[in-house]
Design a protein around this nucleic acid. Sequence first.
DNA 1: GATGATAGATGCAGTATACAGATAGTATCG
DNA 2: CGATACTATCTGTATACTGCATCTATCATC
Lengths: 125, 125
Amino acid sequence: MADEEKNGHSGMRLHGEMLSTSILAMLREWNAHGYQLSKRLAESGLPPFDSGTIYRTLRQLEQDGMISSLWDTSASGPARRMYSLTKTGDTMLSAWIESLQKYQAFLQSAVAGQKDRLDEKEQPE
Amino acid sequence: MADEEKNGHSGMRLHGEMLSTSILAMLREWNAHGYQLSKRLAESGLPPFDSGTIYRTLRQLEQDGMISSLWDTSASGPARRMYSLTKTGDTMLSAWIESLQKYQAFLQSAVAGQKDRLDEKEQPE
DNA sequence: GATGATAGATGCAGTATACAGATAGTATCG
DNA sequence: CGATACTATCTGTATACTGCATCTATCATC
């Protein structure tokens, strides 16, 4: 806990689904290869993701039918896998967003109902 | 994939942080013991959480200083650990909610920008 | 031919999780 | 009493996930 507060990211990590769903979301906009996704994630303001994990997640998402890939050798430099979102992935993303909204509503309703117990131990700011 | 769609929950799970932050949020409202939290989570509309995982998560959160507990033997039945949120946990929860909003904004902006490529295969820059 | 950016992958150690079951107190029913 | 059920917490195990370091490889520039 309280590991460090690098960029204002809390000590908790939620990587798993946050990473995969962010990937799906980005691929809804444009097809892309892993390195691009990795770069964009790094600039997104989201917590940092390990690049090894990103590539592994991509392969996993492909195995799960959420995305599909083909090797792109059109550009110079090392070959790249171009990924695109499948219909399954698109559906899954929508479901996820819905689920996420439920979650957020749950959190916020609890936080809103907090005024009952301000006493007890110590006073916050 | 597409494991199953029990209650409309997608095959993906973000359990880790979703569970711990939901616990923190509930404890912001009132103190509770594990079984209560477990019950309330089950009725929350959120994806189902394993009870073993719930208890282990509680111990973990306590170790991390997010919550604190004491044994409550006042009621009949087996003894229960009453948990309450610490200031650290409260702070962490707020930070988490903020972080979550960033994440959601990221997802939604990507989804919103999707209308550009309905017909096209690819749009390299 | 060394360096650095691009692009992707893997081995390993530590952590997390689902599933199953253990332990225990109390209550009810026959 | 014995069986059953509900409350309440915890643990063992097998698998999965993740961060870190490292590795391969292509190409451009110095």
